[in-house]
C-alpha cells in the first residue's frame, strides 16, 4: 500500500487558519489501512482542529467526508454538492488523492494533511516499512524476493557494501541489511549461485528516469 503520516498539527493549524469552512477529506484505501487518513483519522483531526479553533475563539466549521477512493474521478465527483460550501479542502489522502481533488475543482484550494511516505507493508501492528521503489522493472526474481533498490540504503544491485554488520545497515541499526536478507533467502532457496550473477547497470527509464509515467491498457481505456 501507499503509506502516509499525518503532518504535524501545528503545520495543519497554520495551513487552515485563514479559512472558516473546511472540507476535511479522508480516503478509504491505503491511508485507512495505514491509519493516516481514513474515517477515524478524519474524525480525530476534525475534533482536534475544532477544539483548537474553539479555544482561539475563531469560528471554524468542518465538514467530514471520507471517499471510497480519492484517486479515482468517479468518487471525487461525489464532492460536487459540498465543494461550494467550503473555503478550502484539507485532504488526508496520499498525494494522488490530493491532486485528483485539486484537478477536479480548479478554483478550490486543496491542502495536504498528510505526508505521503512510501510503498510498503505492515511489519506488525502500527509499524509499516518501505518495500518497493516502483522502479518499473522488477528485479525481485533475481534477488530472492527482497528489493535492493527500496531496501538497501545505497540501492546497491550488487551488494552488500562494507558497512553491513550483524545483519544491519551502517546507516541505522534499525534498518535490516537488504543484502543480508537477500543472501539468507537465496540460501534458503538453495540458489546461492544466483548471487554471483552480476546485475548490470539499471535502465532507470522504466522508473522516474524518463519523466512522469503512465500506464495505458488499450483494452480498457475509454
Amino acid at each position: 500500500m501507499i503509506t502516509a503520516e499525518r503532518k504535524p498539527i501545528e503545520d495543519l493549524i497554520n495551513s487552515v487558519s485563514s479559512y472558516r469552512r473546511i472540507l476535511l477529506l479522508g480516503c478509504n484505501e491505503c491511508v485507512t489501512v495505514c491509519s493516516a487518513g481514513g474515517r477515524k483519522e478524519v474524525a480525530l483531526l476534525s475534533s482536534a482542529l475544532q477544539m483548537h479553533f474553539m479555544k482561539e475563539g475563531h469560528p471554524f466549521e468542518i465538514k467530514e467526508i471520507t471517499l471510497e477512493r480519492q484517486c479515482d474521478p468517479e468518487y471525487v465527483e461525489e464532492l460536487v454538492p459540498y465543494i461550494d460550501q467550503a473555503d478550502a479542502v484539507l485532504s488526508m489522502a496520499c498525494g494522488c488523492g490530493v491532486q485528483e481533488v485539486a484537478r477536479r475543482f480548479k478554483e478550490k484550494m486543496v491542502l495536504p494533511a498528510v505526508n505521503t511516505k512510501f510503498m510498503g507493508a505492515s511489519e506488525r501492528q502500527g509499524v509499516w516499512a518501505e518495500r518497493c521503489a516502483g522502479c518499473g522493472d522488477c528485479v525481485l526474481g533475481s534477488t530472492g524476493g527482497v528489493c535492493p533498490i527500496a531496501r538497501c540504503s545505497k540501492q546497491l544491485l550488487n551488494g552488500p557494501c562494507g558497512g553491513s554488520g550483524k545483519g544491519k545497515c551502517e546507516v541505522d541499526s534499525d534498518i535490516d541489511c537488504a543484502w543480508q536478507l537477500i543472501w539468507d533467502r537465496l540460501k534458503a532457496l538453495g540458489m546461492t549461485e544466483k548471487y554471483e550473477e552480476n546485475i548490470p547497470a539499471k535502465d532507470w527509464r522504466t522508473g522516474r528516469g524518463a519523466g512522469p509515467r503512465k500506464i495505458v491498457r488499450e483494452d480498457l481505456a475509454s
Binding site: Q50, M51, H52, F53, M54, K55, E56, G57, H58, P59
Partner: peptide, 17 residues
C-alpha cells in the same frame, strides 16, 4: 477547558477571558 471558554466567548483570546 479552554476550548469551552473560547466557544462560549467567541472572538476573544483565551488568556484574556
Amino acid at each position: 477547558n479552554p476550548a469551552r471558554v473560547g466557544r462560549d466567548n467567541p472572538g476573544c483570546a483565551t488568556a484574556a477571558c
